[in-house]
Design a protein around this nucleic acid. Structure first.
Length: 215
DNA sequence: AAGAACAACAACCGCCGGTCG
DNA sequence: CCGACCGGCGGTTGTTGTTCT
């Protein structure tokens, strides 16, 4: 059996206080991001190492961009979600200063709702049957893609055809924001590319292959 | 003004894959 | 090879703030 990641008896939970934040910041400034498990003790924090890591990566890191998402960021999230599914860390990696948690929250609280309102299924980016087709409001139509045709039929089972991939790539390349999936290092966490069987995993695999090729 | 409902966001939980002894 | 450890990820929950009735 795996040991719990920390001693739950002596760890704080819930919102971080200013003092805790400061301790963590001070420690990481002085020693860098080392072994997360040992950081709480070394920094004098009664927190789980995972909690420290999350706090640092999502809120305390100096390069984090806070505040509302710009329209182009939102468009980009939608496009990348259509391509990659719920691979938030990959999506966040294309948005400098944004974290996976932030992107995920923004998707769930804003974009998802917005798409549903527009009659688009946020899971597969397809228009619902019987819903009046919006003309220029589909997030992908703005760049010229045909919504239902360029999307794979069902996120789960049908892999994108080559032409679909090319089409999506063309969409992305027209974006003003850097979408180059090669050598993705806006965030240090992108150095490792995962390959879980998620929606659009076939396409994601190709992205991963592209990364290899481009390296 | 008060309570209910909803929205937004921070944080936790459990699982997974990689690494190491 | 195997099991333990660790970091990372995505899903989910809990809390707080805002709007509505």
């Amino acid at each position: 059996m795996r040991k719990p990641c920390c001693d739950k008896e002596n760890t704080n939970k819930g919102a971080w206080s200013k003092q805790e934040d400061q301790k963590l910041i001070d420690y990481i400034r002085a020693h860098g991001e080392g072994c997360w498990r040992s950081i709480p003790k070394a920094a004098g924090l009664h927190r789980c190492g995972k909690s420290c890591r999350l706090r640092w990566l999502n809120y305390l890191r100096p390069d984090i961009k806070r505040g509302i998402f710009a329209q182009d960021e939102e468009d980009l999230i939608i496009k990348l979600h259509a391509l990659l599914g719920n691979r938030w860390s990959l999506i966040a990696g294309r948005l400098p200063g944004r974290t996976d948690n932030e992107v995920k929250n923004y998707w769930n609280s804003h974009i998802r709702r917005k798409l549903i309102k527009m009659g688009i299924d946020p899971n597969n980016h397809k228009l619902h049957h019987g819903f009046p087709r919006p003309h220029s409001h589909h997030p992908l139509s703005a760049t010229g893609a045909s919504s239902s045709e360029s999307m794979n039929k069902e996120h789960k089972v049908v892999p994108l055809s080559k032409s679909c991939v090319e089409e999506e790539t063309a969409i992305i390349s027209s974006s003003p924001v850097n979408l180059d999936l090669s050598i993705a290092l806006p965030s240090p966490r992108l150095a490792v590319v995962e390959d879980k069987p998620t929606p659009n995993s076939e396409f994601a695999k190709r992205c991963d292959m592209d990364i290899d090729l481009n390296c």
